[in-house]
Write a protein that binds this DNA or RNA. Structure first.
Ligand SMILES: [Zn+2]
Ligand SMILES: [Zn+2]
Ligand SMILES: [Zn+2]
Ligand SMILES: [Zn+2]
Lengths: 160, 160
DNA sequence: GAACTAATGTTATAACATATCAATACTGAA
DNA sequence: TTCAGTATTGATATGTTATAACATTAGTTC
């Protein structure tokens, strides 16, 4: 399991690399990375934190790419379905996938103070939850795993 | 790990037993189970499924216990903080705790068809997520673990 | 019964999300 | 290259979930 999220890094490269991967996957899978979708993915990648749909919409609106909620939600739906972004249920917010390209079941470490999010990959049907599901005869289709707390940076005095 | 939720049972006894436990804990911990709070807990226990705040409010309103959103949200906040109910993030809904009284980190199996919810207890900081958090220097305060899919009953033809 | 705290009543609004239908752009075949 | 079919976008309206703010009432303590 690789955790990606709190360490410092060459963020410019991180963003452009992810965009390149996304473009490649769209070309390969016959998906259309239209201007709005492309820009929303960029916004998520650049911010590296969970953004609400209306945060996104604010950017789009400022850039003349659309002013109404469906614009943001459609782009986010596309990105989530394509696997380029994930929805964070506990925040009603969205974040760029940190493992672009690979099929995976993500787990998140979410800082309640700065909203930064680290993404871990998990083994889906293994682990306690999978065992409980099998025992109960429950058929898992999707799993939400989100830990909330304080990231390393926010533990040093500045948080509540 | 005990999973509680999909098996059939003497539901009348299940509800009254839970209410008795809740009353005992309130008496012991100097918490006040006021009429609205009591009724909301009953509603959650009786339904045995995830209910939205406005579902709850509908019942309360029909019974003359309050008509405005804060009435429902305050009662639900109380029950969640007291450990008598849990919030299901993936549904924006609430469910009575199936392990009333014990301190625990719940995990849920949520049927997307009938909204029934089974609650499992998990070992919090153990497991892969805990390891990832320690590796990243992340301090977990709260964990959301919610699997969505089909319950045993809904797997037999009636679901999409 | 005065002072304090907890709970409720009430109004308004914030925040998040979708339904619907019209218009346009792209795609692939006749 | 026109046509039909599909995907995307534009636009309006509305639905759903949640909280802020402040007044009032009820319990509790001294
Ligand atoms: Zn991912
Ligand atoms: Zn932080
Ligand atoms: Zn519980
Ligand atoms: Zn079901």
């Amino acid at each position: 399991m690789t955790t990606i999220g709190f360490e410092t890094h060459d963020h410019r490269a991180c963003v452009s690399e992810a965009m390149t991967k996304a473009e490649a996957r769209c070309a390969a899978s016959d998906l259309r990375l239209t201007p709005v979708r492309r820009r929303v993915l960029e916004l998520l990648l650049v911010d590296h934190r969970a953004l609400g749909a209306y945060d996104i919409l604010g950017h789009l609106s400022a850039e003349g790419l659309g002013t109404q909620p469906p614009v943001a939600y459609r782009a986010l739906d596309f990105l989530v379905k394509a696997g380029f972004a994930h929805r964070i249920e506990a925040l009603n917010a969205y974040i760029a996938c940190a493992h672009l390209g690979a099929d995976h079941t993500p787990a998140f470490l979410i800082c309640r103070n700065c909203r930064s999010v680290a993404e871990s990959d998990t083994a889906p049907s293994q682990g306690r939850l999978g065992v409980a599901a099998r025992d109960a005869g429950f058929q898992i289709e999707h799993t939400v795993i989100e830990a909330q707390g304080l990231c390393p940076a926010c533990q040093t005095g500045n948080a509540a």
